[in-house]
Amino acid sequence: MNVRSSDSYDALLVLSFGGPEGHEEVRPFLENVTRGRGIPPERLDEVAVHYHHFGGVSPINQLNREIIANVERELTQRGMDLPVYFGNRNWLPYGTEAADQMAADGVKNALVLATSAWGGFSGCRQYQEDIQGMVRHLEEQGKEITFTKLRQFYDHPRFIQQMADSVRESFGKLPAELRAEARLVFTAHSIPTAADNASGTPEDGPLYSQQVREASELIAQAAEIADFDLVWQSRSGSPEIPWLEPDIVDHAVDLNEKGQKALVVCPVGFISDHMEVIWDLDSELMEEAEKRNMLVERVATVGPSESFAALVVDLIEEVELKRTIEKLGTLPARGCTVNGASCAEGCCTIRKRPAA
Rank of each mutant, 00 (worst) to 15 (best):
Q161R: 11
R168F: 00
E181M: 06
A182C: 08
V167D: 03
L150K: 11
L174C: 02
L178K: 15
F171E: 02
S170F: 03
L150C: 12
A182Y: 03
V167E: 01
F171V: 01
A164H: 04
I145K: 07
Q141M: 11
L174W: 12
P175H: 12
L174G: 03
K173N: 07
E181F: 11
T146L: 08
D165F: 01
P175E: 12
Q161V: 04
A182Q: 01
A180E: 15
R158A: 03
T148V: 09
D155N: 02
G142V: 13
R179K: 13
S166D: 12
Q152T: 15
H156V: 10
H156N: 07
P157C: 05
E177H: 14
M163D: 00
E144I: 09
A164V: 05
L178M: 14
I160N: 00
M163E: 00
A176T: 10
Q141C: 04
T146F: 06
G142S: 12
G172P: 02
S170K: 09
F171R: 01
L178P: 01
G142T: 10
E181H: 09
F147M: 12
Q141G: 10
P157Y: 02
P157H: 06
E140V: 14
P175Y: 11
A180D: 13
K149W: 00
L150N: 11
F159K: 03
M163P: 00
T146R: 15
E144R: 15
E144C: 13
A180R: 13
G172K: 10
E144Y: 06
F171W: 09
V167I: 03
E140H: 14
Q161Y: 02
L150F: 02
Q152D: 07
G142Y: 15
Q141I: 06
G172L: 06
M163A: 05
A182L: 08
E181L: 06
E140L: 13
F159P: 00
I160K: 05
S166Y: 04
T148G: 13
F159A: 11
P175V: 08
Q141V: 09
F171K: 04
E181R: 14
E144T: 15
F159S: 04
A180L: 07
T146E: 13
A176R: 09
L150W: 06
A182H: 08
T146C: 13
K173H: 15
A180G: 11
Q161I: 01
P175C: 07
F159W: 00
L178T: 14
E177L: 03
Q152N: 15
